Amino acid sequence: MARTFTLVQLRYFIEIARLENMRAAATSLNVSQSTLSSALSQLEHDLGAQLFLRLPNRALKLSEDGKRLVAGARILLEDAETLQTSLSGHDDQLSGKLRVGIFAPLAPFIAPRLLGNFRVRYPKIELQFVEGEQQQVLEALGKGECEIALMYDLGVGAEFSMESVDRLGAHIIVGENHRLAERKKPISLSELVEEPLVLLDQVHSREYFLKLFSSLDLEPNVAYWVSGYETVRSYVAMGLGYSILNRRMPHNLTYTGSAVVPLSIAEPVIPISVVVAHVKEVPMTRKARVFAELAREILNDG
């Protein structure tokens, strides 16, 4: 006997999977918790599968069957939206929501440009960014909170597929009054190794920067471990040390009103790739694919 289910049940299921909490999903969908619970129970009955593991704190975690259903449900719902618009005589533009994870230090540079261009090309798609640190974005991908993500290629596991859309080298920044601020030639890291380093303290990023030193048998004098990108720049601008970053700003001013000076590194530096990532087992919808294509186009144009 064929299994039956409804599109409404699938929409409810996707939102529960995203939030991992029945009450939060009910609030988001503007339905009662009992309605949502009943729809989920019926869906599990119709499919003959347990879609969630019920945790003691009332949170929900996708089962293996649930993870597989997320992949197919997104594509099925997108196809249903396309079919509905074609039958009603409207254009067949892509529509609906698309949640994209983005690594927080990249967001100020990339998100506004992507959002502006995306709204012009695909006005019927509601694009939402889920911003966080590298590990948080990976967790959001794994939980289905976002469909794809724009992030660095650092620490990305084998369960994710990646496509490079940009490459970033590393550079030194010093304050305007630093002894090397006027230097025109590239600076060797050995010239700075004894000075206080303001390290961008984010998982994977910090390992990348520290490896630049260890690969040269150097040990930096880490004076400050700072998690915020702009905070790092402000520390340096105030003369508290130097730092190494990847993304060059279009200007050198910081929130303090003082400026930093970017300097090239003399030693060869392995660049970081900015990638579009998604869970291997979850095929991308057409909305996600057009976003990936736009990201590649915008970032390659600089």
Rank of each mutant, 00 (worst) to 15 (best):
P186H: 14
I173Q: 05
A295R: 00
S28Q: 14
F109Q: 10
V290E: 14
R167T: 10
Q135A: 08
H178R: 03
P196A: 03
L10W: 01
F5R: 08
D166E: 14
L60Q: 11
V269H: 01
K67C: 10
I172N: 02
K211M: 09
A181N: 12
S258H: 11
V203E: 04
Y152K: 08
V203N: 13
N117I: 02
I270G: 07
K184D: 11
G89A: 06
H204C: 09
V261Q: 00
V274I: 09
A295C: 08
S243H: 02
G116C: 13
L245F: 00
L98W: 07
Y208F: 04
Q93H: 10
T85H: 13
T35K: 11
L168A: 06
Y12T: 03
L29Q: 05
G89Q: 13
T85P: 06
S190V: 10
N117S: 12
K143E: 07
H178W: 14
V165S: 00
V269T: 15
I265D: 09
L69F: 03
R99N: 13
F209P: 04
Y12E: 05
H90K: 15
G228E: 05
K124Q: 10
V290Y: 05
S264E: 07
F103R: 09
R18N: 08
T4C: 11
L189D: 05
E78Y: 01
L192S: 14
P112L: 06
D153F: 02
V120R: 15
T4W: 11
L253D: 06
V70W: 06
L60T: 02
P271C: 14
D92E: 07
D166L: 15
H251C: 04
S88G: 07
R113G: 10
Y208I: 00
K61R: 04
L98F: 03
V222G: 01
V165R: 08
L197W: 03
V232I: 00
Y208R: 10
I148P: 07
Q9R: 13
G144W: 02
P262R: 01
V279Y: 01
L62Y: 03
N21K: 09
A170P: 11
A39E: 12
K61Y: 10
R248Y: 04
Q135K: 15
V226R: 00
A111F: 05
L83K: 08
S28F: 08
R58F: 03
L253F: 13
N57L: 03
T4D: 11
S205I: 14
A71D: 05
I187S: 04
T256V: 05
S95L: 09
R121P: 05
S234H: 01
V236T: 11
L210V: 04
I16L: 12
V260L: 02
L40C: 07
V226E: 03
S88P: 02
Q84V: 13
R23G: 01
H45V: 07
